[in-house]
Write a protein that binds this DNA or RNA. Structure first.
Length: 838
RNA sequence: GCCCCUGUGGCGGAAUUGGUAGACGCGCUCGACUCAAAAUCGAGUUUCUUUGAAGUGCCGGUUCGAGUCCGGCCAGGGGUACCA
């Protein structure tokens, strides 16, 4: 075998072609081997893959290759989440058609992924912008409509009054439109919704079955679904009407000092009809965007309607306000406000001089302790009539019981989860397959006319949805009555596209979205890997879509992802500066960071260094891996992605370190060159380490703890390098090759061939650890005095406690440290430590 | 604002899940080889007032023993329903 350097520029391409020619990674639906579906979240084709993608796909690739070696039939597909806003932005900025831009990005990124040696089954590649794909999606949407899971209602959007267009939340910066700079307003539009709330209980219960999901993701989803039980009751109003409110804290009812309704609540609307000031106030509430963060942090504003609401216990009349912080979408759109025990109510009461009453206190003696902020914690009820002395839970129940008994209210379950609004007033998405007819109303497009194809001849340069102003596309005849009608011009949220792609990967018939029989063979996904930023929305929507299909009997799977791994994000500093009203971002390769500060290479002017945050296209803080692959080869890059950082943790990008990986690749190459199957002799210590490493690396890969596997491989490599030639050493070298093969597949194939082994290493078998060699005969015992380490002892494994104690007390260092003090207690942990308490 | 997470040497991190803190790697320093460089190999590398002591963001608690458990803070990040 050669002792020259490993040359990735030659080897990488050679083996990539070998895998492709032999169709090594094409999954066989009919295979009898145990199946394994490994899936990484498919990328948005932004143009170039970035380091975050490389990290994500390397992890999945190592697992997929490992599973093949352990005898599984592996499905490891890749495709493109190809609809979305950046394509429209590129069209505006560069004058390229979104479709053209997207398709050329896909071609680039596919080539980049191939250069990394990813073991994808490219025969199943799909792009969500293909009419073939979104046509099936439109069919499912119509099925959901017919099953009563789709409806239309009014809902608020961010409206840019200058550009006369709907803005995404990301396009609203400091309350202003990103292009026009005009203050954004809320505007109501009639939009399409999916009834995800029908599945709230199911989605919540399902979390209990997902024991291979990270706890934190389940907690986040549980909080997002937000099941609460409380009291819904009605206030009698001074104008003779009544007002339904919902509260999760009925126990604090005696602390209620005002009532508040949402600006779009019927009571508010009624007041505004006869009161200009109220109408003006409601108008004012329309200022600003629609995000929860914006609504929650906005200054609390209210308008006193002059109406009174009669307190059900005290009979007192509480003032009814219209308040900007009350949401029409949650509960009844009206609240009983308790300033003492809800911070929002506290802020509001402080501003408008309303009473702040304590009704929960740490103990009865603190009943009149002043409140400097709302106290939401547990305690005992005070200043609350018949509730005094009760704890919070009993008081809640007592109030609900009274309300039910007296007939003015009842216990109710309320969910924070809202129905999924899927309408987007945008071009680059799947058209919603419906037709508006004056006579027949909303009519689904007949299935034999699907897909409703997006027209290519559109003008993107003007703000707004080009489908609306397209001269011909939207004009059709009503499928029901034949009269002139118009197509729906809203397109589907791109989260719809990503809610079922994993089913299409498993099965791709032409006449329907998937074949449920084939899907059943592969699903659920055995290991799903993606960014933690998708913990709630994407994962919840995909769970919903799967369950919705199951409910209409099109699928026999409820939870799509059996095991989830959320990798940390690859992060990087941002570079920006203000140009006029706008903040302009620059990419790391446009910036010179060498002088301590940051300077733009193009004009030598300073730019601001922003926080270290997730890499994103909009902040331009991405790093292109291509130059690194070119210089060091795919294996060094892959190894680097797996080393050091635990995969669930964020990885702050730095270029330092890749050199070390390159050196290790060469070090392995030299070691593999020393393989000699003819040498005789055994090396017991090395044999033990070989088998321990086999066991540990297998466990580490299964747990996706690649950084630990890497550290163990370093350890075995060092040991093998130092060992004298023996049959054991040759076996160790061959084992190391197999262990690194999922991580460095090109080097592995090259060395495998050079060693004269049969076939591809991609088709080889993972080594088996001998359990007898995994246990040590000697252990090192820590000897502590009063919890401080004083000595260590090397003893036979399994030595009785009394012997350990005697040995520890005999230690000279222990005696010196005890200094004649009386031994009061000795704690012995077998095979681990002795702690002497004096 | 709210929900979730993270915090350990110069850097990425490890720590058998309550039992020897700093494995392994990067970087750096010194040495070997070389006319020289690259590559490679060897040694060292938490801090300090170094026979010892301190030390895992900060303050406190539980324990024979805390990076790990509990309470309270601080800082950074993710999500917050139209970025994907």
């Amino acid at each position: 075998m050669t002792d020259q350097r490993f040359d990735p520029s030659r080897a990488d391409g050679h083996w990539q072609h070998a895998w492709e020619d032999r169709q090594v990674f094409v999954a066989d639906d009919a295979s009898e081997r145990p199946r394994c579906y490994v899936l990484e979240m498919f990328p948005y084709p932004s143009g170039r893959i970035h380091i975050g993608h490389v990290r994500n796909y390397t992890m999945g690739d190592v697992l997929a290759r490992y599973k093949r070696l352990t005898g599984h039939e592996v499905l490891h597909p890749m495709g493109w989440d190809a609809f979305g806003m950046p394509a429209e932005n590129a069209a505006i900025e560069k004058g390229v058609h979104p479709g053209e831009w997207t398709r050329s990005n896909i071609a680039n990124m596919k080539a980049q992924l191939k250069r990394l040696g990813m073991a994808f089954d490219w025969s199943r590649e799909l792009a969500t912008c293909d009419p073939e794909y979104y046509g099936h999606e439109q069919a499912m949407f119509i099925d959901f409509y017919e099953a009563g899971l789709v409806y239309r209602k009014e809902s608020a959007v961010n409206w840019d009054p200058v550009d006369q267009t709907v803005l995404a939340n990301e396009q609203v910066i400091d309350g202003k439109g990103w292009r026009s700079g005009a203050p954004v307003e809320k505007r109501k539009l009639s939009q399409w919704f999916l009834k995800i709330t029908d599945f709230a209980q199911e989605l919540l219960d399902g979390l209990g079955t997902l024991d291979k999901w990270p706890e934190k993701v389940r907690v986040m989803q549980e909080n997002w679904i937000g099941k609460s039980t409380g009291l819904q009751f009605s206030f009698a109003l001074s104008n003779g009407e009544s007002l339904e409110v919902y509260t999760t804290r009925p126990d604090t009812i005696f602390g209620s000092s005002f009532v508040a309704v949402a600006p779009d609540h019927p009571v508010a609307q009624a007041v505004a009809a006869s009161n200009c000031d109220a109408a003006k106030f409601i108008e004012q509430c329309k200022k600003g965007g629609t995000t929860a963060a914006e609504l929650e942090t906005a200054e609390k504003l209210g308008f006193d309607t002059g109406i009174g609401a009669k307190h059900p216990f005290t009979g007192e009349y509480l003032p009814v306000y219209i308040a900007n912080f009350v949401l029409m979408e949650y509960g009844t759109g009206a609240i009983m406000a308790v300033p003492g025990h809800d911070q929002r109510d506290f802020d509001f009461a402080t501003k408008y001089g309303l009473p702040i009453v304590r009704v929960v206190a740490p103990d009865a003696a603190a009943a009149d302790a002043p409140l400097s902020e709302a106290e939401a914690g547990d305690g005992v009820l005070v200043n609350s009539g018949f509730l005094d002395g009760m704890d919070v839970a009993s008081a809640k129940q007592a109030v609900i019981d009274r309300a039910v008994g007296e007939g003015w209210g009842e216990g109710r379950t309320v969910w924070r989860l809202r129905d999924w609004g899927v309408s987007r007033q945008r071009y680059w998405g799947a058209p919603i397959p419906f037709i508006h007819c004056d006579a027949c109303g909303v009519v689904p497009v007949p299935k034999d006319q699907l897909p409703v194809v997006l027209p290519e001849d559109v003008d993107i340069s003007i703000p707004g949805n080009p489908l609306v102003r397209h001269p011909t596309w939207k004009h059709v005849d009503c499928p029901k009555c034949g009269a002139a009608a118009v197509r729906e011009t809203d397109t589907l949220d791109t989260f719809v596209d990503s809610s079922w792609y994993f089913l299409r990967f498993a099965s791709q018939p032409t006449d329907r979205p998937f074949d449920p029989e084939v899907v059943k063979k592969w699903m659920p996904v055995d290991q799903y890997i993606g960014g933690i930023e998708h913990a709630i929305l994407h994962l919840l929507y995909a769970r919903f879509w799967t369950r919705a299909l199951a409910r209409i009997h099109q699928l026999d799977v409820k939870e799509p992802f059996a095991s989830l791994f959320t990798q940390g994000m690859v992060t990087h500093e941002t570079y920006s500066r203000r140009e006029g009203d706008r903040e302009v971002f620059f990419s790391p390769d446009e910036v010179d960071r060498s002088g301590g500060g940051a300077v733009l290479v193009a004009d030598g002017a300073k730019v601001d260094i922003g926080p270290v945050i997730k890499m994103s296209k909009s902040k331009k803080n991405t790093v292109d891996p291509d130059s690194i692959i070119e210089r060091y080869g795919a294996d060094s890059v892959r190894w680097f992605m797996l080393s050091d950082s635990p995969p669930e943790r964020d990885l702050p990008w730095s270029a330092a370190g890749i050199e070390g990986c390159w050196r290790f690749v060469q070090r392995l190459w030299r070691l593999f060159g020393q393989y000699d199957a003819s040498v005789q002799g055994t090396d017991q210590a090395l044999d033990r380490q070989v088998h321990k490493t086999i066991a540990a690396v297998g466990e580490d890969i299964e747990a996706l703890s690649f950084n630990k596997a890497v550290a163990r491989i370093y350890g075995l490599t060092s040991a093998a390098e130092k060992a004298a030639p023996s049959a054991t050493r040759s076996e160790a070298i061959r084992t190391i090759l197999l262990l690194v093969s999922p991580m460095m597949p090109h080097l592995a194939e090259e060395a495998w061939a050079a060693m004269g082994q049969d076939g591809l290493i991609a088709d080889a078998a993972w080594p088996k650890a001998d359990p007898a060699l995994l246990v040590d005969e000697e252990v090192t015992i820590a000897v502590q005095v009063k919890g401080k380490l004083r000595d260590t002892l090397t003893v036979a494994k399994g030595l009785p406690n009394a012997d350990l104690e005697a040995l520890a007390l005999a230690s000279e260092k222990v005696q010196r440290s005890l200094d004649g003090a009386e031994v009061r207690k000795v704690i012995v942990v077998p095979d681990r430590l002795v702690n002497i308490v004096a």
